[in-house]
Nucleic acid binder design. Sequence first.
DNA 1: GGCTGGCACTCCTCCGCCCGGAGTGCCAGC
DNA 2: GCTGGCACTCCGGGCGGAGGAGTGCCAGCC
Lengths: 343, 343
Amino acid sequence: MLKLDARRRILLRTVVEEHVRTAEPVGSEHAALRGRLQVSPATIRSALASMEELGLLTHPHTSAGRIPTDRGYRVYVDMLPKADPASSSARQKMRRRLGDPAEEPGDVANDAARVLAGMTGYASVVAAPALQEQTFSSLHLVPMGERRALAVIATDSGALQGHSIELPEGVVPDDLEHLSRAITQWLRGSRVGDLTHQRLEQVLGEASHHHRWLEEVKAWLCRGLARGVRPQIRVAGARHLLAEPEFKSPDRATRLFEVLENESVLDGVLAAVPEEGVWILIGEENPHEQLRSCSLVMAAYRAGDRRGGTVGILGPTRMRYRSAVTAVRCVAESLSEAMRSSA
Amino acid sequence: MLKLDARRRILLRTVVEEHVRTAEPVGSEHAALRGRLQVSPATIRSALASMEELGLLTHPHTSAGRIPTDRGYRVYVDMLPKADPASSSARQKMRRRLGDPAEEPGDVANDAARVLAGMTGYASVVAAPALQEQTFSSLHLVPMGERRALAVIATDSGALQGHSIELPEGVVPDDLEHLSRAITQWLRGSRVGDLTHQRLEQVLGEASHHHRWLEEVKAWLCRGLARGVRPQIRVAGARHLLAEPEFKSPDRATRLFEVLENESVLDGVLAAVPEEGVWILIGEENPHEQLRSCSLVMAAYRAGDRRGGTVGILGPTRMRYRSAVTAVRCVAESLSEAMRSSA
DNA sequence: GGCTGGCACTCCTCCGCCCGGAGTGCCAGC
DNA sequence: GCTGGCACTCCGGGCGGAGGAGTGCCAGCC
């Protein structure tokens, strides 16, 4: 663990915060002033130089001020006071801005993304609760046209997932209805992710020998639901990033936006966030090549008593981490609360 | 109607296509060469000057070549050969790239947006079929927790829409099921947009006097479904726009991305597209202020025998209109076909 | 009348240059 | 361990000139 004396800690904080504010390198004189350190710039310079040796700062060229390295940001972030959970008044205000998840379950992720982007001025990324983490509530087989049925799964948090299957001749609506009811009763309360092949075999086994097309339902239930379902990821406020000087070069911006349009990459990053606390990835810490020039501040939320999804902020490494952490924590907590009360 | 002689038509086409290709003003000599006109640059110059008087061309400064005005692009576009419908082989190839809408109804718009962006190298915008244009297929009231039910509507093209409602005491799952079945039977086959208050009053009237909570279902059915449901709009390939020189200035790009993140503006534009043909808006023609520096190429597609949604391309006014029109038409036709066969 | 080559003119863009300023590292002295 | 002084480095902006692309106009030609 890195040990910094008080002056260096103050200096690191000052350099980070000034650089974040102005996007310019911070000189020794300016740092002394802003850090309210009552020593001369020369003294500051030697301290800065030592922190450069530690890998916390660099300077872009000989006669420029200091800017933090990724490692510097990391140490800065770890030094931030562990904020207490968002005040309940803040959370209430937040909940009013998020739609009522009980009313329009699908839209909450959307709202959260929008609110988060608006609060922070960065891009936000929100993953809806993964279907397989939710609790199975019902299956409906709805006749569609002559030889097709729409199989609809509903979960206890109100998510819907449909899939159309072909029917053999001779299946009548009543068959579908009986079957829907039976399957619903058998499976209600299961975790969707637990609907493995064996489990379905047990439940549907006998019937599916008689009805060949049930195989298709079964296949869909485990393949489609276990993991094939596309992750629902919302991005909002991407436009804010264009204003940041680090993304003013078109190809940097392009690379960034490639990631933001790539759901599987985003899903990978968001899914790796632990259930508790705010998770931060700074520049080079990022597992994904294309995200190495940005930072992510993320937190998981809960849906009822299961893991829900993840909310996050994406911005330049030169990010206002403190407000990002506050916003992410507040939205995640509010979402958890909203989705607890509706379950 | 504007009359141009053959030479001027060739020149307009040449200037537009060269400018589109290079993003640079086109000089008289270059235009003569590229247009294979066997006259001297001086002659070309006088023709260009006359077209400038007509408002089809400008030049950025005295000693620069010509660039098209919005009006020039418009005349150019109107001159394009009315392409015949996409060849069936192209459409087949396309359909393979679009997921099977029968399988994952929700994802088709997503796929279409992605394909369109990939084909053209611009941003694509796809509106899913509006719920109210679809045909009601079934309603399910699924019990959720103690005092809530999830009301789910399914349409014949496989779209799902859920809404959670509160139940009074004493309603048991069997009530919900009977009611679901009854409502489904009463309403099956109606256009969702036709589920007006009166219509529901007729159907539910008697029952809803006995069951107060039915009012809530009814209110949702007409309010929520008639128009309150958020339009489903997918944007893909926005990153491509960052590479265009016209959007390299951050604030132009920002303004553009504001629109792309604003679903209601996009919905307004897409909903105004006529059912037949490819609809093009060039620069100043655009009703929305913020879209005045871009062009849109759009076409509606059909879902079964009703109006479906709209697909479109958004790019700079300096756009490869021909390939955009081809792509948009091809995707719209393939979508219409895919959604006909699945209905 | 329409087309042509010639010509003067305009204006942009690029390049090299220089200079001021900001900030550094080092050092001797307190 | 802190300080002021000092030499040094390097960036960024401003200036000016050269080069070049393209124009408009005009007199002459077919």
